[in-house]
Simulated assay, not measured.
Amino acid sequence: MDFQRMPSHFASPYALRQAIRAGDFAANTSGQAPGFVQCNLAILPRDWAMDFLQFCQANPKPCPLVAVSDQPGNPLLAAAGEDVDIRTDLPRYRIWQNGALTEEVSDISAHWRDDLVTFLIGCSFSFEEALVADGLEIRNVSEGVNVPMYNTNLACTPAGRFHGNMVVSMRPFVPRDAIRMIQICSRFPSVHGAPVHFGDPQAIGINNIDTPDYGDAVTIKPDEVPVFTACGVTPQAAIMQAKPDFCITHSPGCMLVTDIPNSKLAIL
């Protein structure tokens, strides 16, 4: 989908969430509220929740758990921040039925059920701040687009009813900066950690790097190599395989921005 390009940049996660809730912000969240953890989202019925939890535990690189709702049916996540309501505080959601995407919405209040369990999964947007602080250009941020994401042939570890291949996000760097990027990202295992691949996209099953499966294409300069990081869209690929009768996820690039400082997740 085409994301709304908006000039507003929010320093406060709370202010950003309030703007989203009011319908005043509908863009991808990369670069917003720097310094705070951004999360992918998966919401499943209680009878699917244990299988999904086991899938995340078996695949911590693409599915690093940040928080889980304290009880089924509770849309408020105090662990994520002040006045966080999972029904309204992401710019865009996806509704799934039997493994098929049925619609995208900006509010899931009408879809909420008493048996739903919420999972927050770490996002690579969180380590972008550390990369920028080190002087590295993040191409999706500098070009004002959503990060490019791709399906791969990298198999996840099956767990319960969930299985499938990893989804990755991509950021291009010159080789010297790619090495520095790997060093920095290794400090953030709770938001995907070190990249899973760099260089030849076809080696991980990506046939056309100019056509992402999710997000937007970015410029790759002749002297740059693509660097691929595990991506929190991976659960959506697993959901398409497992086919739960009902599920809600974030729309790729539209994260929950929490009040959790990125420094809390860094290994120094």
Rank of each mutant, 00 (worst) to 15 (best):
M1Y: 10
F3H: 04
F3I: 03
A15C: 11
R17H: 02
Q18L: 11
A19Y: 05
R21T: 05
R21C: 05
A22H: 11
G23L: 09
S30P: 09
G35E: 07
I43Q: 01
P45M: 06
A58L: 09
A58I: 07
N59S: 08
V66I: 15
G73S: 09
A78Q: 13
A79P: 00
R92Y: 02
I95R: 00
I95P: 04
G99K: 05
L101W: 01
T102I: 12
D107L: 07
D107T: 07
D107K: 02
V117I: 13
C123I: 05
F125A: 01
S126A: 15
V132I: 13
G135H: 09
N140A: 13
S142Y: 13
M149W: 08
M149P: 00
N165C: 15
F173D: 00
F173R: 00
R176I: 12
I179C: 06
I182L: 09
Q183F: 13
Q183W: 14
I184C: 03
F188Y: 14
F188Q: 01
S190H: 14
P195L: 02
A203N: 15
A203I: 13
T211P: 01
Y214C: 04
V227D: 08
P235D: 02
A237V: 08
F246V: 05
T249A: 03
S251P: 07
M255G: 08
L256S: 04
S263H: 14
I267T: 14
L268T: 12
